Amino acid sequence: MATRLFIDGAVGTTGLEIRERLQGRDEFDLILLDDDRRKDEAARRDALHAADIAILCLPDEAAKEAVRLAQGSGTPLIDASSAHRVAEGWTYGFPELIGREAIASAQFVSNPGCYPTGFLALVAPLVRAGLLSADWPYTVNAVSGYSGGGNALIDRFAAEPDIAFRAYGLQLGHKHLAEMQACAGLAHAPVFSPSVIPAHRGMVVDVPLPLAALPGQPQAEALHGALCAFYAGSVIVTVAPLAPAPSELLLSKDAVPWDGLRLHVFGTADGTQARLVAVLDNLGKGASGAAIQNLNLMCGLPEATGLSL
């Protein structure tokens, strides 16, 4: 029997991409609401209670409301918003870091943010291995396609075609910082410098490291080896060879959906500096692809089923 799946917020950017990844999959039977009932509280409550599992693709406050509407149903929930990423009782939905069994057995799973996905994939395993200090003041430079900002930012880029680059988060205190710090086990929140370019999708997350100043003075070769060991066997997260390094990393304006995550370690010849770099699709492993990965695990299916890798 097919699993009854309800996507609350199915017409938003993340919801639409999830539906695309579910096309042709007979393991799931989608519960759909007509346009005039999508925001009706009673209809949403009925759908959440009727579902075997639900995915919330909503703004934070609406996601909290959906959790309230689902109370008493026992329905497992995957929340793609940032409302519950560090909330008590919720499992952080990064299987490679948290453990696939933890995701599979959870009732409430919160999808990671797109930027934190890249940062945590790079830093968390190295902190766990003792190669990077949990007490270091890390910085993160990142660039994303505009779809990460939802329909509002998509419309802004369409209305202002001369804008080539948007730096934001200049007041600091970005909402992603809490999960970056908590899930990497850091003593301090990193300094985060996000930006957006006129490309629909794609993301590069860059963590510069002054190796000579770091406790223990780790070398790029050791960092790379630890990441390779940590993600050995993963079909979703890959680690690029340490050398030869490419001359540049590119994002395409017309990139196709991709649900993988590629990690790089670049080091200077004298061993004094390195850059940890993650490349991903902000709508893939950074959002909808991650939701599908978690959905698969929670339904007892191979985690990469339906993903574009």
Score class of each variant (00 low, 15 high):
I78M: 02
R85S: 12
H84E: 14
F108H: 14
R100H: 07
E101A: 01
A106G: 11
A106F: 11
A106S: 10
G89W: 10
S82H: 08
H84D: 08
S82R: 04
V109T: 08
S81R: 10
Y92F: 12
D79W: 00
E88I: 13
I103H: 01
R85Y: 07
G99C: 02
T91I: 09
I98A: 03
A87W: 09
R100A: 15
I103K: 00
T91P: 12
A102W: 00
F108L: 14
T91S: 10
G93W: 02
I103P: 01
F94T: 02
G89H: 08
V86H: 05
G99T: 11
E88G: 06
A104R: 02
A80V: 14
A102E: 12
G89S: 10
S81I: 15
H84S: 13
I78D: 06
I98K: 02
E96S: 09
T91L: 07
P95L: 09
F94M: 03
A87D: 15
A106M: 12
A104Q: 07
T91M: 11
A106Q: 08
G93Y: 04
L97Q: 12
G93R: 02
E88L: 12
S82Y: 14
V109F: 02
L97R: 03
D79F: 01
V109W: 00
G93T: 06
H84W: 05
A87Y: 08
V109P: 04
G93I: 03
S81A: 14
V86Y: 06
R85K: 15
G99D: 05
D79L: 04
I103M: 01
E96N: 05
A80Y: 00
S105R: 15
